[in-house]
Structures are given as C-alpha cells and as structure tokens.
Nucleic acid binder design. Structure first.
Lengths: 218, 218
DNA sequence: CGGTCGGTGCGAACGCCGTACGCATCGTGC
DNA sequence: GCACGATGCGTACGGCGTTCGCACCGACCG
C-alpha cells in the first residue's frame, strides 16, 4: 500500500488496512468556521457550558483539537461566534409593523427568554463575558428593539434606558431559570415548578415593566 | 539531624539545614473555613473569578492547595461560601420600619447593585451557578425583601413575583455592568461611561418597575 | 509516663484543560 | 514538474481540580 493515508504513525501495524481504498473517507467538508460553530452549538446544547473543550469540539467535527486553531483564534472566539449564532434565532418585530409597541416589546422579551431557555448555556456566557464584542446578529436585534421604543414615542434620551430596562429584566429572570434548568439536566433535582407557573411569573414582571414604561408616554 | 522537619524528601541533601530551629514558623492560625473564605474573597476581589484556583487559594492562606480539602469539599463549596459571605453585606430595610415600601425596595435594589459592583465576580457566579443552595445570608435578605412587599399590601400570590421582578432586573442590569467593569480591570479598554450615567440608567429602569408595581396596589 | 489514635498538612500523581510549535501532507499556480 | 502556502495533527508545556497515602501532632487512655 502506498503510505499516503496513514501518514507516519509510530506504532502502525505493517499490514495493509483494508479500508485503504477511498483515499480519505470523505474529506469534502473538513474544517471551517461554520462547521466549528455548528459543532460547538451541538455540544453546548447537549452537555452544557463546562463540557465544551477544544479537544471534544475537535472530535465532534472529526478532527484533532489543535486543528481548530487554524480557523479560530481560541476558545473565546468560538464562544463569541456561537453566541452570535443563537442570537440569529431572535425575532423582534419591525418598528413599522402594525400593532402597538407594547405588544411588540412583549413578544421580543418572550422570544429572548425562549431562546435562552432553548440554550441554557447562554446565561453562563452572558454572566462571564457580557456581550464583549457583540456580534452582528445581536447588534441587529438590539437596533431593531431600540427602534421599537423610538417609534413608540419615547424621547431620544429615554429610548435606550427603556430598552435596557426590559432586556436587563429578561436576562436576569432567565438566568435564574436557565441555571435551574441546567441543574435539572445535569441530574440534580427534579422539576419542581411546572412550566406554566414559571411562564406566568416571567410575564408578570415583564408586564409590570411595560406598565411602568407606558406611564412615561403620557 | 533528626529527620522530623524535612519529612521524606527524595533528593534532600544529607547536610543538616540551619533553619531546623523553630519547628514550624507560627502555626497558630493555620487553616479554617473562615480563613479560607476570607482568602478567597481577597483573591476574587483582587483578580477576578478565573484567577481563583485551589492552589492559589492555598498559597493565600499560607498552605498547600491540597490542604484545603480537609476543610472544604471542593471549589464549588468555596464559591458557595464566599457568595453567601458577600451577601452578608446586603442591607434591606425591615418591613415594619417607617417609610413607604417603594423607598425601601428602591434602596434594597441599589444596595444589591452596589454590592455586586464592589465584587464584580458575583455576576459570574450568579450566571454559572444561580443560587444553587442559597446560603443563610441570601435567604435572610430574600425573606426580608418579600416581607416588604407583603406589608405593602400586595396580595399573597403577587408578592413573590413582584419581588422576583425587581431582583431579576437588578441582577440582569448589574451583570452587564459587572462584566464591563471586569473587562476594564483586566486591562482591556478604558472607562467610557462615567459612573453617574450608569447610575442614572440603572435608576431609570428600577423606578419604571416600581411604577408598574405601584399600579397593582390600586 | 508510654502508647495509640483521630485530625491535619502536604507531596505526588491522575486526568483534563487551553494553547504554541514544528512537521508532514496536500492542492494549486507557475 | 515543482515550489509554496494552507491545513491537519502529534507533541509538549504549564495549569487546573481532585485523590491518596504518608508524616506529623496533640490528646486521650492505660
């Protein structure tokens, strides 16, 4: 056999392996940024934040851990990329869409919460990193939401603080929930609060914030 | 030399070291839970969450890293303990104190924020762990704050969600600030927002939530 | 007073981590 | 046909959390 598919293995047996036929399995896809963040997302959703290591991530894409560094500067960048990836799932209504601002902001808040509960590791990332350099997806959502407040009639100096208030509440409320879910998933305790009750509590706080913001529009 | 102060060193020289006199330096204070959490708090405040390692913590108390395990089950417990320690700094007014509920809750929120900004690593802990098993200090503060809402006249089913709304906002808003501060401290960028502006934005959101809650008391 | 015995500090070691580096390989443009 | 950049990877380094067994010490019991 030509020694071109088992390149320099120090303990390789001398016999020719039968699978020597197709030069490399299917090297078509190999490595790429997109493939890496997809694998990282799979790993994080399946096993949580502290299960993400460069070696495991390499195995997930079918490569050695150190190969990733050809495409990514390090673990931090992987986390930034995958965070922005899930931010692509966010939905916030356009500012010029029909319907009142309150409904639109409420939906956006629920959507942000739903995304974070789908990917509970997001809470850990936000705690550690904060949006260090917020990616394009997160930036886009941020701007869309700000537009919601601006067209609702909030004065220029208040639109941003108002948006921050809503987002802060959602992030804070959801962090607690996500940590709770992670603990459950990691085999800790059993589900205590039925889902409906958590939903109700979350919406209660969100509506109170919207009540408070609405008084500023009079 | 009596081999009782350099117990079993495989490459020890045969000559008697001169410093054999005072058997151990001053072994008076040695190790204890309190000493360990105090050292951990010092380390965390000085260098942040990811600088906390059992070895460094051991060095901080003047011991080997592995010695800590005689007093503490592991790193997680250290974090739980030190988190509850700083929660002892929290101040929330008594429910039967004079003054309106709104002022009391507002003060409590500002106090919680101030504590977290004094110890920015708290945000990381809340993100990762959530109050896993909330310690006695945190529990005490939680109950005091709940009492504030109950005596304010919130119906029994609303007092807890109302409290959670306020706490969630404060935690969410402060996490972002703390991450920002940590990045600044770690030498990243320069202070961009003056402190006063951040204070103002935080208070804006807090007051809007209180506005919203107040409407429920009519 | 001698002996034993639980509590305590610690060195060594295991397995994992993030990452730097140099080598082998491969596809591609001259 | 060949040189060269891009790419995958084995190796290695330093650090991490944690376990384990040994040395030591004070206290208690005879």
């Amino acid at each position: 056999m030509s020694a071109d598919e088992q390149h320099h293995d120090p303990v390789a047996p001398a016999v020719a392996p039968a699978w020597a036929g197709p030069r490399r399995k299917e090297r078509q896809p190999v490595l790429s940024r997109a493939r890496i963040v997809a694998a990282a997302l799979r790993l994080l959703d399946a096993e949580g934040m502290e299960a993400l290591s460069m070696r495991k991530l390499g195995a997930e894409v079918g490569a050695a851990g150190t190969s990733l560094y050809r495409h990514v500067t390090g673990k931090d960048e992987v986390i930034e990329l995958v965070l922005d990836e899930v931010c692509g799932e966010l939905v916030v209504p356009a500012a010029d869409a029909p319907g009142d601002w309150r409904e639109a902001v409420s939906r956006s808040g629920h959507n942000l919460r739903a995304m974070t509960l789908r990917h509970p590791w997001v809470a850990s990332v936000l705690g550690q990193v904060g949006p260090a350099h917020l990616g394009p997806n997160l930036m886009r959502m941020s701007e869309r939401m700000l537009a919601l407040f601006q067209t609702a009639g909030f004065p220029a100096s208040e639109a941003a603080p108002a948006m921050r208030a809503v987002v802060s509440y959602v992030v804070g409320a959801t962090s607690g929930e996500a940590a709770h879910l992670s603990r459950i998933a990691r085999g800790g305790l059993s589900e205590r609060n039925p889902r409906a009750l958590r939903d109700e509590h979350f919406d209660y706080g969100l509506q109170r914030i919207l009540d408070g913001l609405q008084t500023r529009l009079a």
